[in-house]
Design a protein around this nucleic acid. Structure first.
Length: 469
DNA sequence: CTATGGCACGGATT
DNA sequence: AATCCGTGCCATAG
């Protein structure tokens, strides 16, 4: 994280560039923290309640969308409406009752993870156990996994291990089920346990997770089947069940399919940074793209501060001047960031409209480089803007923004559909031919790779039809 | 012998 | 410069 104080003495333009980059790559949530800290430490900066629409510059109500832009007179139905929007309810916890907001059914988590979990279990804990629970909850990583061990916790608090375990159990059965597990396997096991109460869980699922998690995530189903001495179709069923119903990283929101199974867990997406919905709620053809701003109100230089600058005494004047500079820099960069994000989303949504409306099959391959030319910005600008951001689609799914740039997602989904539909298990070379009919030319080896990515077993192992929902 | 997965290489992408 | 992705070659399982 770049500290702006390091930049003050440098030349404005380079500082400006660096800061713009830094802000661009921040998610909404991180941006809020950044601005808040600057607001607190820099007297030159202030926030006023008044909000102006960045598009049409009319005065906005305290929250909600721009009344002008969200009800345009003659919009081109193919062009999405992109605007900056405040969803204070995301951050304040107030339920949104505004009527100009399409009431989607996404659930809003307003607390951070530790608080959220703690509230659920607080009632059931003895008063003296609560600090321990709180202690445990502060030792979770971004995925909701424990970064310490129960033994250490017990030692630290000088209480018997059993008491810790009881608390842990309570935590782990709270809403992001499996939260507080010490490893992905444990999280999965807990989820299996909980799910088993309400629905049917494939046999041997526990053993498969306990013994063969690494194989499972590497799609080495035949080896695992051998190890557990069960049929391979059974293993396949288990794998399917896990990828559809369980989440090895409890705190990470479920976004659809299994993309990157195990190893890497670089980012957690909480609230989306961009929300795509239909204009005025109902599915007509115009898409409404809201880039979520972390706060309502407008940042500006405090006018009093500017006046007082002339009267301040000599030894403080440098500090004050740099404060002023840093504040105006931040404001400029915010505008730059917003502008870039708006242009980016405008273009992306236009290009990928069919994907948004009709699903992954219609995603067109799009590279960041291509977009950077169209928007006339540097490639790295796009990269930074895209990485780490998440988008909520009209169907309430939250996906990473980078999915819009997935080079093979469309082919993979077509492949998946192909396999789902075809009665006879097709081998990889046959699949290659089928894809070629649709104008998609890929190598045999590539089909195999895509299958693996989608968690689909090889032809000779998928005789029986499995039905899990 | 066939179908598939592992390894690794080269070109594209970030 | 580092990383990702499609692909070819080869070993291996069935």
């Amino acid at each position: 994280m770049l500290q702006m104080h390091n930049l003050q003495h440098k030349h404005i333009t380079s500082a400006h560039l660096a800061q713009t980059m830094a802000l661009l790559s921040l998610t909404t949530d991180e941006l809020r923290q950044q601005v808040e800290s600057e607001l607190a430490s820099n007297p030159a900066l202030e926030m006023i309640e008044e909000r102006r629409c960045p598009v049409c510059h009319t005065l906005l109500p305290p929250r909600g969308l721009c009344p002008v832009c969200s009800r345009p007179q003659s919009p081109d139905p193919n062009e999405p409406i992109v605007l900056l929007s405040t969803r204070d309810d995301f951050y304040t916890g107030k339920s949104s009752d505004s009527e100009d907001m399409p009431d989607n059914d996404y659930s809003v988590v307003t607390d951070d993870l530790p608080t959220y979990v703690f509230k659920q279990i607080a009632m059931e804990l003895d008063a003296q156990d609560r600090p321990i629970a709180a202690y445990i909850l502060t030792h979770l990583d971004d995925d909701g996994l424990l970064t310490t061990t129960p033994i250490e916790v017990a030692r630290y608090h000088h209480v018997p291990l059993e008491r810790i375990m009881a608390i842990m159990r309570l935590i782990q059965h709270s809403d992001p089920i499996g939260v507080g597990a010490s490893c992905p396997e444990e999280a999965l096991l807990i989820q299996v346990e909980v799910l088993a109460e309400t629905r049917k869980v494939p046999d041997h699922a526990q053993e498969a997770i306990e013994l063969g998690m690494d194989m499972l995530s590497r799609h080495q189903y035949s080896e695992l089947a051998h190890l557990l001495k069960i049929s391979q179709s059974k293993v396949m069923e288990i794998a399917r069940f896990i990828s559809e119903n369980l989440n090895p990283f409890p705190a990470r929101s479920h976004w659809g399919e299994i993309n990157q199974p195990a190893q890497n867990s670089p980012q957690v997406y909480r609230q989306p940074d961009v929300i795509i919905g239909y204009l005025n709620g109902q599915p007509n053809k115009t898409l409404l793209v809201e880039i979520i701003m972390p706060f309502s109100g407008t940042l500006r230089i405090n006018p009093l501060f500017r006046q007082a600058l002339h009267q301040v005494n000599e030894n403080k004047i440098d500090q004050w001047k740099s404060d002023l500079e840093s504040a105006s820099l931040l404001i400029k960069c915010m505008q730059q960031r917003n502008n870039t994000m708006r242009r980016l989303m405008q273009r992306v949504v236009t290009l990928q409209k069919n994907f948004i409306l009709n699903g992954e099959e219609e995603l067109i391959p799009l590279t960041r480089a291509q977009l950077s030319k169209e928007l006339d910005v540097h490639e790295s600008t796009i990269s930074r803007a895209v990485s780490g951001k998440s988008v909520q689609l009209p169907n309430s799914r939250i996906v990473p923004l980078s999915m819009f740039f997935d080079r093979s997602l469309n082919v993979r989904t077509i492949l998946r559909n192909l396999i789902d539909q075809e009665p006879r298990p097709l081998n990889d070379t046959e699949l290659v031919n089928l894809l070629a009919r649709q104008g998609i030319f890929v190598a045999r080896r590539t089909v195999a790779k895509y299958r693996a990515m989608e968690g689909i077993l090889p032809a000779h192992l998928r005789h029986s039809v499995m039905t899990i929902s």
